[in-house]
Design a protein around this nucleic acid. Structure first.
Lengths: 264, 264
DNA sequence: GTAAGTTTTGGAAGAAATTGCAAGATTATT
DNA sequence: AATAATCTTGCAATTTCTTCCAAAACTTAC
């Protein structure tokens, strides 16, 4: 392979992973570590890449990761668990509506192998699938709500009104015996449209949301088909869930940590 | 085979693969490595190809205007210049339609101080404004085209049909006296809808697009109001632009910078 | 049609560059 | 401080480049 081609491939690979060890790069471009080291040195002179001990890193790391990552850190582990669990409920090739919000986002991360058709109003979710060739993604239009990366407004609701899906994967701010709640009133219309458009509604909530009631009421418990969560539900809402006929899914309390495939 | 035909075939082959070893080229054109080496040397004088150790590379690799390779775009410096220049043409508070594509993206980067209202079908552009509180961003719905991060399809066209804007900032794959061209046929409908929805159409093109014609024809020159570019237009299209009444904007040639910025 | 002159082509020998490796120096980790 | 990993430097092997030359192809003149 030509030196310039090799260098370009190194740069391209780094744009995907942001950081890589020399050994990793050497394997990628099928050259020795020495050669890669020299190449990275040249690229560094060019300014696009910076050398580090044992590897190289992109100077301008991709900025496309999302704002809400800060908020994302809350209950991260729980949301990962919920994400895996909920993705298991989706059958290959199904049409899936994905709500905005961090919990639904983590479900989306595990959805790619199912080759689903995605409908979403969440920019982060759309970004997730922007490079996935096997997933058809439909984005609702709408006004972009700053910080959250959610598309809102009548256009979004209208677009969803024309869609039909197998499953809607929803997040929420809280749940009590009286219903499901969300903290952003202006998302309510859209979430209701999502639930109307789907045959089956899956609500994903971590255990901290149990018994919590926030400003805006989203829907009755009866409209939820499945609740996916990370811990067994407490006695304060379990009867209400039962009465509403909601199927509850949570990881079996196995102390030996079921060894599911890791994040990437 | 004629020498000229051989050189043309070498160039065409490089258009496809971007890099090739001399041996590879020799096999392609059925000539000896020595001859190919000489040919590549001549092509290098012509400027379209550059010699490398052991091979050759295309100087202007198929600059697919719409593929976002994360951060790195071809003619980055030129596009930054165009971005600044074009953003100056937007008045504070105007409603601006922004095309997908890398050039329009760079315009968007300079638009935030104008506190505009943005309408776009480009995910990268939407991401850009996702955290900007002072910019109202409307995203058209549509099917997400992988790799390009563009929303396409009837939903996108329909949404744009209901919008009205002061300015449309468009990119394209090429321009000749016969009109404006784009490399992706499926974007044409949307771009036309954008141009219909806007009172004023600004086309942003770097100089490498002059005289270039790609698969799909977007529109007549007459439909363009302003052309923003990075270098004076050559005599091959200047008369046509004049005849179409297009106002051309480019940075005034700074005499302190006679040597053109190098390839990268 | 042939002969002389010019250009182009393919190849060879020495020069130059690239590559991969190893030994000693440097940096990170425990 | 000790150990492991990585970096620098120098070097040999390989590949590629330059330059030159002879053969082939093409032009031009007769």
């Amino acid at each position: 392979m030509q030196a310039e081609e090799r260098q370009k491939r190194i740069e391209e690979y780094l744009q995907q992973v942001e950081f890589a060890s020399l050994e990793e790069l050497a394997e990628q471009v099928e050259a020795s570590v020495s050669t890669v080291r020299r190449d990275v040195g040249l690229l560094e002179t060019g300014g696009s890449v910076r050398r580090t001990h044992g590897g190289a890193r992109l100077v301008n790391p991709r900025t496309d990761e999302f704002v809400f990552n800060a908020r994302d850190t809350h209950q991260l582990a729980e949301k990962e668990v919920i994400g895996r669990l909920c993705a298991d409920l989706v059958l290959p090739g199904q049409t899936v509506i994905i709500d905005a919000g961090t919990t639904a986002f983590h479900v989306a991360r595990y959805l790619e192998p199912k080759k689903p058709q995605i409908i979403t109003n969440s920019l982060p979710v759309a970004n997730l699938f922007a490079s996935a060739m096997m997933v058809e993604t439909i984005v609702t239009g709408g006004v972009l709500y700053p910080r959250l990366g959610v598309l809102v407004g009548p256009v979004a609701v209208e677009t969803l009104g024309q869609m039909h899906a197998d499953v809607a994967i929803m997040g929420a701010g809280g749940i009590t015996g009286d219903g499901v709640f969300n903290s952003h009133a202006l998302l309510i219309d859209i979430q209701r449209a999502m639930m109307r458009a789907a045959r089956k509604v899956i609500l994903c909530l971590d255990h901290t949301k149990f018994g919590r009631r926030t400003v805006a009421r989203l829907c009755d418990l009866a409209e939820i088909d499945v609740l996916v969560t990370d811990a067994p539900v407490g006695p304060e809402i379990a009867p209400a869930l039962d009465a509403a006929g909601i199927e509850v899914t949570h990881p079996r309390p196995d102390p030996s940590e079921s060894p599911l495939p890791e994040t990437r």
